[in-house]
C-alpha cells in the first residue's frame, strides 16, 4: 500500500517540474533513489531537511514574514485573527500558531557558552528583553517544522521520524548562523526566524533563519 503510494508520488514527480511542485519527497528508505536503508531516522531526516532548506523552507519563511512589531499590534487586538492572518499551523485541535517574524533590537544578554546558546533581545527599547533568539546547537521546539505548510505529518512514518525532521531543520538553522567572537552584549541584532506562539506575555523563542549583527 505504502509502496504503491510512493510509486505514484514518484511518477507524478517525474511528470511535473520541480519548481512550485507541492509534492513532499517521501523520506522512506525503500523509495527509489533514496538513501541506503541502514541510515538512522535522524540521518535520513537530516538529509531531507538539507534538501528542502533553501528550496522550500526559506521561501516559505519569506512568504509569511511579518515584522514582529506588526504581529504584536495585531495580537493585541485579536490573537486568533492575528493567527489566521499571519500564522501557520498543522491540522488538529488547538495546535499553536507558528509565526515567521523579522525584527531588530539590542542584545541585553548573550549566553553563547551553553549548548543551548541564546540571546535575549530588547526590540522595543524599554530596556527589558522581549525576544529570545535561539542559537543552538541545541535548539528547542519544532517551530520550523510546524510552520511549513508543505510538511504534512501524514507523509511521515511516525512521530519518531517526524521529530527527527524537526531536529534536522533546527540543526541546519544553527549551521547557517555566523556568530561573532567575543561578548555580544550591547550589540544590535537583526533577525528573521520562526517561533511557536504560546501567549502574549511569554517572550517568543525564535529559531533564526537569518541573523546579522550591527555595532554597539
Amino acid at each position: 500500500m505504502r509502496h504503491s503510494i510512493l510509486l505514484t508520488a514518484a511518477a507524478i514527480a517525474l511528470l511535473t517540474t520541480m519548481s512550485g511542485c507541492k509534492i513532499v519527497k517521501n523520506p522512506d528508505p525503500n523509495a527509489e533513489g533514496a538513501a541506503p536503508a541502514n541510515q538512522t531516522d535522524a540521518e535520513r531526516m537530516g538529509i531531507y531537511a538539507r534538501e528542502i532548506w533553501d528550496s522550500k523552507v526559506l521561501p516559505a519563511v519569506a512568504t509569511h514574514l511579518v515584522p514582529l512589531s506588526d504581529l504584536r499590534s495585531a495580537q493585541a487586538l485579536d490573537i486568533d485573527a492575528a493567527g489566521e492572518k499571519h500564522g501557520m499551523r498543522p491540522d488538529g485541535e488547538a495546535n499553536p500558531w507558528n509565526f515567521a517574524v523579522a525584527g531588530t533590537g539590542t542584545i541585553l544578554e548573550a549566553n553563547t557558552k551553553s549548548r543551548a546558546a541564546k540571546l535575549k533581545v530588547d526590540t522595543d527599547a524599554d530596556g527589558v528583553p522581549d525576544v529570545i533568539v535561539q542559537l543552538g546547537p541545541v535548539i528547542r521546539g519544532t517551530a520550523i517544522r510546524d510552520a511549513m505548510p508543505f510538511i504534512i505529518f501524514t507523509n511521515f512514518r511516525d512521530q519518531i521520524e517526524f521529530a527527527k525532521l524537526a531536529g534536522g531543520l533546527n540543526a541546519i538553522a544553527h549551521d547557517r548562523l555566523t556568530i561573532p567572537e567575543g561578548d555580544l552584549t550591547g550589540m544590535q541584532v537583526t533577525f528573521e526566524g520562526v517561533f511557536t506562539f504560546k501567549n502574549v506575555t511569554t517572550s517568543p523563542e525564535i529559531v533564526p533563519t537569518k541573523l546579522s549583527f550591527g555595532g554597539q
Partner: peptide, 9 residues
C-alpha cells in the same frame, strides 16, 4: 476535512 495524522499538544 482534515489531514489523516494530527498531533495534540
Amino acid at each position: 476535512g482534515l489531514e489523516e495524522k494530527q498531533l495534540m499538544d
